[in-house]
Amino acid sequence: MSSTPPLRGDSAPTLPSVDASAPQRAGTDFPGRARIGERTLRTDRWWLQPLVTVTVLGIFILYTGVRIFMRDYYWVEEYSYLTPLFSPCLSDSCAPGSSHLGTPLPELPFFIPLPFLIFPILAGFRATCYYYRKAYYRSFWLSPPACAVAEPHTRYSGETRFPLLVQNAHRYFFFAASLLLLINTYDAILAFFPDTGFGIGLGSLILVANVALLWGYSLSCHSCRHITGGRLKHFSKHPLRYKAWTIISKLNARHMQFAWISLVSVMVTDLYILAVSAGWISDLRIVG
């Protein structure tokens, strides 16, 4: 008995099998695909974005890496300026007056940075951020360096395994960093009320601008968006959370911009306070 040939569409398509024992190759040069050979045929300057990212992030990592080991020039007592990199300062090693929350920690040996408790939170918040992940996976890990440019790695498991599973802790870094940001906000307000009375200086304005940008970065975070309302299935049952989600979604569309501007603003704020504290420049006073 002859069998009827299957009609088109009768059988479900299946994936071709991959020989697991064959040597792994990266790129698009797999058997069966168009043999083009080039890693990419892009003619634009696709390498520029990763280059800029490596440069700016590299400068930031180098700057903060050196800065947190410095034990001077993070506090201007005359105007109550405290750099956000060292706030809150919690040990007996902190300069007098710079510890708004007291000093629960003893003197720290020279090899432990004064912000050793807060810096991992700030760094962790940025390192696990969905935007920065895109930025450094592309530019530092070249996975991929740019869209439609083949990556150099022969195997890829993404965020399915340790240590990259830790990226899932982003929301906890968000909570912790938000607490620190509340303290930064308090610092910025204090900068208007030094011991000599009310005053406004360029430093206090920089601190306020920095805090505003940091709030922009934190509130536009994808985890914040999810916690606020993103996890809901029925917005109609939660009108307030829906409203908050709508606002945060608008901020979220600018998350990349907030990420870069706030990164630079933290460096600029710290550098300004360093310069005033070291006596390189004097604070431009507007009032008081």
Partner: peptide, 15 residues
């Protein structure tokens, strides 16, 4: 379905 493989490099959005 392998969501963990996605490293959110956003090329899908770009194209």
């Amino acid at each position: 379905h392998g969501l963990g493989y996605c490293n959110i490099t956003k090329c899908c959005t770009e194209v």
